[in-house]
C-alpha cells in the first residue's frame, strides 16, 4: 500500500468537496421550500433531458466525429434495446438484449 503523498491527499480532499457541494446544496437549501407550479413543471423534464444528454455523445460520437451511419454499432443497438425496455418494462432484459446485440455485431461486422 505505502505512504500517501500529501499533495495527492490535498487533491483528493479538494475533489471530494467540489464533487459533494453540487450534489448537496440544491437539496439542502430548497428541500423545505414549496416551488411554484411552473418551476415544478420545468424540473419534471430534467430527468429525460439529462439522461438523453448523457447518452447522446456515447452513442453518436466516435473518435470526435458524429457517426450516423449503419457502421455505428451503438446506434443500431439502440433499437432492440429500447424495444426490449418498452415491451418488458424491465431494465435488465433491455440491458441483456443491448449487450447481446453488440456481441453479435462485433462478431459479424
Amino acid at each position: 500500500m505505502g505512504e500517501m503523498d500529501s499533495k495527492i491527499i490535498v487533491l483528493i480532499l479538494g475533489m471530494a468537496v467540489v464533487t459533494f457541494l453540487p450534489r448537496f446544496l440544491p437539496m439542502a437549501l430548497m428541500m423545505e421550500k414549496n416551488l411554484p407550479e411552473i418551476i415544478l413543471q420545468w424540473l419534471r423534464f430534467f430527468p429525460i433531458a439529462i439522461l438523453t444528454a448523457l447518452l447522446a455523445p456515447i452513442i453518436f460520437v466516435h473518435n470526435g466525429m458524429l457517426n450516423l451511419s449503419l457502421e455505428n454499432k451503438y446506434l443500431i443497438a439502440i433499437i432492440p434495446t429500447a424495444i426490449a425496455a418498452f415491451k418488458t418494462r424491465n431494465v435488465i432484459s433491455a440491458m441483456i438484449i443491448g449487450v447481446g446485440t453488440i456481441i453479435i455485431l462485433n462478431k459479424f461486422l
Binding site: 439522461l51 439502440i78 429500447a82 433491455a94 443491448g98
Partner: peptide, 8 residues
C-alpha cells in the same frame, strides 16, 4: 449505455 437506454 444499454441500461441507460432502458431507463430512459
Amino acid at each position: 449505455p444499454a441500461t441507460f437506454i432502458g431507463l430512459l
